[in-house]
Simulated scan of single mutants.
Amino acid sequence: MSPAFPLVRTTSPVPEAERAAILAAPEFGRHFTDHMAQALWTPEAGWHDRSVGPLKPFSLHPGTAALHYAQEVFEGLKAYRHADGSVWLFRPERNARRFARSAARMGLPPLPEEDFLASVEALVRADEPWVPVTAGEESLYLRPFMFAAETFLGVRPAERVAYSVIACPTRPYFSAGTGGVALWVSTTYTRAGRGGTGATKCGGNYGASLAAQAEALQHGCDQVLYLDSTDEEGCIEESGAMNLFLVTAAGELVTPALGTILEGVTRDTALTLAPDFGLAPVERPVTFKEFRAGLADGTITEVFAAGTAAVLTPVLGIKGEGYALTVGDGTPGRLTTALRERMLDLQYGRAEDTHGWLRRVL
């Protein structure tokens, strides 16, 4: 059993009135809780110095390896307050395993699953007053991350690695809520290549996405839709930081196969729940030509994006150079809405958890 993350409480917490004001209107990634979890790794000692203490800045030498070689990975998950006041995590074990896979891909030491879970739970317990009482979809977003903390300029895996977990109260990621989004099909940028870091949750992937996101915004769209090539002869991959799903008239829930895309926890949840709604889950390559034709002839009836922050977000239309296509009748699809509601009901304890996905913290 991994040692606990002992707590040293801050002597200067955010005042209660200020915290209440933040929780009344939380914004994604804007306000942070009072504490952070931490651990260090070196080849000699392995993982050590586990703790939860006051939230504070890192002090980094200008030669810190992560600043130069982007040796860094992270995760994202949420803590949900149920109607009885209890606080739960949703499938955190899958985040822990993906975090370890991401670390291995980036030459970082995998954090044991028990340490991942212990650190997240310890932070939630320390900052329990920050978990919102939901009036809609508020939650406490948790960001575990690790980075190369060694002061060294040289292309090799770092021999000092820092791990931390921070948290912020949040509401739905998209301001449109369940109203839906539009996607811009980029033929300028691709997200990943075979053998690359597409399946890894690392900062470099997201940094490289910012120009594509700006391109989408310039064309009046909310997010980018990536293909696996810079022409429309390729296959669809992801939508920004979210997995993509298609509902077909034949009763299938289709999503691109794994390999160069992120193995999303919400993605797996949607696939698992699909049969409850009469949908056959299918993971396979989808060419853009098939996707565009399916939207035009109605064989693709609904499209949605899936992710921890976005939950299930309806896609109402796509645009590209010289065309604009509407998904269905241009409103959120019936099955998308039903799947979304079921997922939220599970996360907030309003539906029976027959899969054993919820993990109680408090």
Score class of each variant (00 low, 15 high):
residue 279 L to C: 02
residue 91 R to Y: 10
residue 337 T to L: 11
residue 320 G to P: 00
residue 246 L to H: 07
residue 212 A to S: 15
residue 32 F to G: 15
residue 91 R to S: 10
residue 288 F to D: 01
residue 155 V to K: 10
residue 15 P to N: 11
residue 220 G to D: 08
residue 39 A to E: 10
residue 147 F to G: 03
residue 172 P to I: 01
residue 292 R to H: 13
residue 192 A to G: 05
residue 284 R to E: 09
residue 314 P to S: 03
residue 99 F to E: 09
residue 16 E to L: 11
residue 351 A to D: 10
residue 105 R to C: 10
residue 165 V to F: 08
residue 44 E to Q: 14
residue 361 V to L: 04
residue 144 P to T: 10
residue 59 S to P: 01
residue 52 V to W: 06
residue 230 T to I: 15
residue 219 H to K: 14
residue 30 R to E: 12
residue 149 A to M: 06
residue 103 A to C: 05
residue 312 L to H: 04
residue 235 C to T: 08
residue 192 A to T: 07
residue 204 G to R: 02
residue 118 A to I: 00
residue 279 L to I: 13
residue 250 A to T: 15
residue 232 E to W: 03
residue 310 A to D: 03
residue 210 L to G: 04
residue 254 V to D: 12
residue 65 A to N: 06
residue 351 A to W: 04
residue 297 D to S: 05
residue 12 S to Q: 14
residue 93 E to T: 12
residue 357 W to F: 09
residue 336 T to A: 08
residue 74 F to W: 11
residue 80 Y to V: 02
residue 278 G to S: 12
residue 108 L to F: 09
residue 349 G to A: 03
residue 175 S to C: 02
residue 59 S to M: 11
residue 63 G to I: 07
residue 137 E to H: 14
residue 333 G to V: 04
residue 76 G to S: 12
residue 121 E to C: 14
residue 251 G to C: 11
residue 116 F to W: 02
residue 333 G to D: 07
residue 120 V to P: 02
residue 92 P to V: 09
residue 164 S to K: 00
residue 263 E to P: 13
residue 308 T to S: 02
residue 72 E to P: 11
residue 39 A to C: 14
residue 316 L to S: 05
residue 266 T to I: 15
residue 323 Y to R: 02
residue 3 P to N: 13
residue 6 P to H: 00
residue 356 G to K: 14
residue 282 V to L: 08
residue 215 E to N: 06
residue 154 G to N: 09
residue 167 A to S: 07
residue 83 A to V: 09
residue 198 G to R: 06
residue 217 L to T: 15
residue 224 V to E: 00
residue 86 S to C: 05
residue 255 T to Q: 08
residue 169 P to K: 05
residue 76 G to L: 05
residue 11 T to R: 12
residue 7 L to I: 14
residue 289 K to Q: 10
residue 320 G to E: 03
residue 60 L to G: 02
residue 126 A to F: 04
residue 81 R to I: 01
residue 60 L to N: 04
residue 40 L to V: 07
residue 37 A to L: 07
residue 35 H to R: 09
residue 271 L to W: 06
residue 166 I to T: 13
residue 197 T to R: 00
residue 133 V to I: 14
residue 69 Y to I: 07
residue 238 E to H: 06
residue 184 W to I: 04
